[in-house]
Design a protein around this nucleic acid. Sequence first.
DNA 1: CTTATATTTAGATGATAAGCTAAATATTAA
DNA 2: TTAATATTTAGCTTATCATCTAAATATAAG
Lengths: 95, 95
Amino acid sequence: MNDTFKALSDPTRRKILQLLKEKDLTAGDIADQFNISKPSISHHLNILKQARLVQDERQGQNIIYSINLTVMQEAMGWFLGMIGTKGEPSDDKHE
Amino acid sequence: MNDTFKALSDPTRRKILQLLKEKDLTAGDIADQFNISKPSISHHLNILKQARLVQDERQGQNIIYSINLTVMQEAMGWFLGMIGTKGEPSDDKHE
DNA sequence: CTTATATTTAGATGATAAGCTAAATATTAA
DNA sequence: TTAATATTTAGCTTATCATCTAAATATAAG
C-alpha cells in the first residue's frame, strides 16, 4: 500500500498510467510523451513496476508496458474504507 | 490533485487521516499517537491542510482537526477515471 | 560478427522532504 | 501580569528522490 501511494505521488508516473490506460506502450513510446530523458522514464517505470501498478513483457527489441488495474482497485479500496461512515471503525481490510 | 497525492504519499499522514476519520482530534491528541515530535506532526498537519484534506479550528488553547471527506472523494474520482473501461478515452473530469 | 536500435544500469548532482531542537505565539489560569 | 499549557514557526541536518550523462545489456539486421 505504501509503495502504491509513493508511486502515485509523482505526476509523471500518474501520466504514464493514464497513457497505459488507453493502450499498452513500449518504453520508447512512453518516453516520447515526456521532455525527460529515457533513463529517467525507465526509472519511473521501474518504480511503477515495483508497486505492481504496471507489468512489462519483452517483445523483440521492445519492452511493452501495460497497466495492472487490480492494484489500482486495491488502492481505491483504501479510499472506500476512508470514506465509509465517519466514526465507524474501519474493517481493516485496508490498512 | 498533485497536492492531494503528495499529501497521501506519507504513511504518517495517512494514519492521521485514519485517526480523524474516527473522530475529530486536537493537535496534541494526534501527536500522542506517534513517536514523532510535536513540531513534526504539526508540519504533517500543515501539509494535509494545504491539500485541504483536513480542516482546523481553534477551541480555546487547543486546535481541533477534522477530516475533509470531499477532497478524499475527489481523489477517489481519479481512480474511478482510471479504472473505467480500458482503452476508452477518459472524460477528463479527473486530470 | 559487426552495426544499429531499444532499454536499462551505474554513478553523480541538485532539489525536496522528514525529522529534530529551540524559540515564538496564543490562550487560559493564578 | 506572570506562569502554565498547546501549538506553530524557524533553522538546521540528513535522507530520499528526480534528473542527467555515460556506459552496459539485449535483440535484430546487414
